[in-house]
Simulated scan of single mutants.
Amino acid sequence: MQAWGLVVLLVSKALGHTSEINLTEEDKASGFLHSQRALAEVTEMIRTSHLIHKGLMNLQKDYIEEISGDMVFGNKIALLSGDYLLSNSCVELANLQNQELVELMSSAVRDLSESEFIGLRDSQNNPLPSPPKKEKDEYSFQFSDDPLEPVRIEDALGNAQAEWTLRNILEAGSLLGKSCQGTLKLAGHSSDLQEQAYRFGRHIALAWQACLERQPFISGSAGPFSLVSAPVLFTLEYNHGLYAEIEKGYHNINDVDFDEIRRIVLEGPGLELTKKLQSEHSDMSFEFLRKLPDTEARNAILNILAAME
């Protein structure tokens, strides 16, 4: 699990707060505000609740031959645990008594929900890539810099980079970006700096995701992996025949031959393009960090980015 809360706190500490903030709000020992710590906790709770809810299984008899009591109980625990964390995050957020922040973080939860309704899914709600476009077109899909504006998905599906970016901004980048923006809002920083922090959060989340998605394709790897990962999507764009293997997962993703897909990906340009994509987002994250004072918090974020290389 990505430590979104840690990144939020590091950004908070690296930039500090303006003189307009009451000094009693600051935690002298840590170097950031009590409200910023609370926001970091909210971020982690929202992120964790989403991951727990994603673990729910479809227990229809059409898909599972024998449904055990343990499976039903596990689903109930996952549902209740995720709901508990999400409800607690709402309470913590309300206690900060900042209407603009509540609206901002609510839009992040909206994006997490929308990420579960993009494109095709198998019977267990695992995402499947959209059929690749017949002709490779240039990546022209753009996201608005307005964090409250809903994302239009129509033009992204079928384009490898656009679809990957869409899925991962909604599922990860939006939450981290808006949390980074929100923590500077609490510290009284300008709207311009808040927007820069929002873009930074998006880019570091995407760089992190691209790094993680390269791991299943290192030498000696085995087992299943995400079929909407960047290496697979980029390979699909150059080898449309790969989609025939992916189509086997419409009923159940376990019907897919992951070893065969891994072999095809390793032979194609997908991994190299994923590495390039990661570098692009890392570079855009560095642009924001270069503007920050040389502090331990800034250096810690730089170390996180360096560890991805």
Score class of each variant (00 low, 15 high):
L59D: 05
E20P: 00
M308N: 04
R202I: 15
I77T: 12
E154V: 01
P127M: 13
I253F: 11
D70Q: 13
D155M: 10
Q60N: 13
H189Y: 07
V91H: 15
V151P: 02
H281P: 03
L128W: 09
Q36N: 09
E66R: 12
L305I: 14
K133L: 14
S30E: 08
G177K: 09
Q196C: 07
L176S: 02
P129I: 15
D70K: 14
V109W: 02
A307C: 05
E171P: 00
E237H: 03
F73R: 14
A230M: 08
T295H: 05
L59Q: 05
I301P: 03
G31Y: 07
L233W: 04
M57D: 03
G74A: 11
D283E: 11
I204D: 00
K76I: 15
D62W: 07
S35V: 05
G220M: 12
S144T: 03
A108S: 15
K54D: 08
E163G: 06
G268Q: 14
N95Y: 06
G201H: 12
I64N: 04
H240A: 14
N126C: 04
H53K: 04
M71F: 11
E116M: 12
Y198T: 04
Q60L: 11
S35A: 14
E92C: 00
L271D: 01
E154N: 13
W208Q: 12
C211K: 07
E260F: 07
H50V: 11
P269E: 06
K76F: 13
A244C: 00
R202L: 03
Y250N: 07
V228E: 01
N75M: 06
F143P: 03
E245N: 11
N159V: 15
L51W: 03
H189S: 09
D146H: 02
N125F: 13
S130F: 13
K185V: 01
L59S: 04
E26H: 08
P269D: 02
Q36C: 05
N159A: 12
G173R: 08
M308S: 03
L175T: 08
I261W: 04
S113C: 10
K134C: 01
S87D: 08
M105L: 15
Q142C: 11
R167L: 15
S113N: 07
E272C: 01
E267D: 03
A222W: 06
S113M: 12
I52H: 12
P131S: 06
N239R: 15
D192L: 13
A29Y: 08
D283P: 00
Q60D: 13
S229I: 03
L23D: 05
E280D: 10
E41G: 06
E65F: 09
S279E: 04
